[in-house]
Computed example of a mutant assay.
Amino acid sequence: MTLSANQLKTEVIYPDSDGTPMAESDPARDYLIYGVESLDIYFQDRDDIYVSGNLFLYYKNGIPSAVVAPDVFVVFGVEKKKRLSYKVWQEEDKVPSFVLEVTSLTTQENDEEDKPKKYALLGVQEYFQYDPTGDYLSPQLKGSSLVEGKYQPIAAKLLPDGVTSIHSEVLGLDLRLFDGELRFFEPQTGKKLLSHKETEQARQAAEQARRDAIPRLLELGLSVEQVASSLSLPVDEVRRFIQE
């Protein structure tokens, strides 16, 4: 029996996992989560921006070994949806425009040598590295922009309060270090990007601050209705506070 060419083809498998659990230090894991969540929230109203991290990114069709797994990455011009892995050829050849690697002892050499070469060949416009402990990178935060196929350092700025800041043209955001902790900021407003956990904590703190202001406003002679209006609280909630 003669087999057709299609029958002779072996299916190429692109694993979604390497079969081993992710082993990260607490700082590396925390900043990986912060990076993905804060950027995902920031771009939540854009259906054409995909934010992910620690996900296999395959960049050559038919070659499963041609793979990287950036800690945090952002792709512009593709559908925002859940993926088990990212295959460049299935995404109209769109590659990440921004990559952040959270460097540790086990990833330092790869982050400094191997990955920049791969990202440059892929056309990743900006490549950032951050070392949460400050033990493996000097300086602790680095940013590079792709210029004629090679990465050139992005100059860091020292803000008046002593904070180190590097601007990402791709994201339109600043990456800043506060006592060694990385945070994203909107440069125009100075607003800090928060993770889901930080957003919830901020909400709870704001609600508690409004409740704490109730007795002070009542002591000033404001009516229940005026207090509720000024604090953006339901009138019934102010009344419940008085009854407690």
Results as ranks from 00 to 15, higher is better:
Ser65Glu: 04
Arg46Tyr: 03
Val88Ala: 00
Ser52Leu: 04
Val88Gln: 05
Ile49Gly: 00
Ile63Thr: 13
Ile41Pro: 02
Gly62Tyr: 15
Pro70Ala: 13
Val88Arg: 00
Leu55Pro: 15
Tyr50Met: 05
Tyr59Arg: 12
Ser85Leu: 13
Tyr42Ala: 01
Phe73Asp: 03
Val75Asp: 02
Val88Gly: 01
Arg83Gly: 13
Ser65Thr: 03
Leu55Lys: 13
Lys60Phe: 02
Pro64Glu: 08
Asp47Ala: 12
Tyr58Gln: 00
Ser52Asn: 09
Gln44Thr: 08
Gly62Leu: 08
Leu57Glu: 06
Gly53Cys: 03
Gln90Val: 11
Lys60Gln: 04
Asn61Gln: 12
Phe73Trp: 02
Lys87Gly: 06
Glu79Ala: 07
Arg83Asn: 10
Ser65Trp: 08
Leu84His: 13
Val78Glu: 01
Val67Gly: 03
Lys80Phe: 14
Val88Leu: 02
Glu79Phe: 12
Asp47Met: 09
Ile63Ala: 04
Ala69Asn: 14
Phe43Thr: 02
Val72Asn: 09
Val67Lys: 11
Pro70Val: 12
Asn54Gly: 06
Gly77Ile: 13
Pro64Ser: 08
Ile41Trp: 13
Leu57Phe: 06
Lys82Thr: 15
Val75Gly: 03
Leu55Arg: 14
Gly53Leu: 05
Lys80Arg: 15
Phe43Gly: 00
Lys82Ala: 12
Leu57Gln: 05
Gln44Phe: 11
Arg83Lys: 14
Ser85Gln: 15
Ser85Glu: 11
Asp48Tyr: 06
Ile63Gln: 13
Val51Phe: 03
Ile63Glu: 15
Asp71Leu: 01
Val72Pro: 05
Asp40Lys: 07
Tyr58Lys: 07
Val67Phe: 03
Phe56Cys: 10
Val74Ile: 02
Pro64His: 08
Arg83Ala: 07
Val68Gln: 05
Phe56Thr: 14
Lys80Cys: 09
Val88Ser: 01
Asp71Met: 01
Tyr86Arg: 00
Ser65Asn: 11
Gly77Asp: 05
Ala66Pro: 10
Ile41Lys: 13
Asp40Ser: 12
Gly62Ile: 10
Asp40Glu: 10
Ile49Met: 07
Ala69Pro: 15
Asp71Glu: 05
Val74Arg: 04
Lys81Gln: 07
Gly53Trp: 04
Asn61Trp: 14
Ile41Asn: 09
Gly62Arg: 12
Val51Lys: 04
Ile49Asp: 00
Ile63His: 09
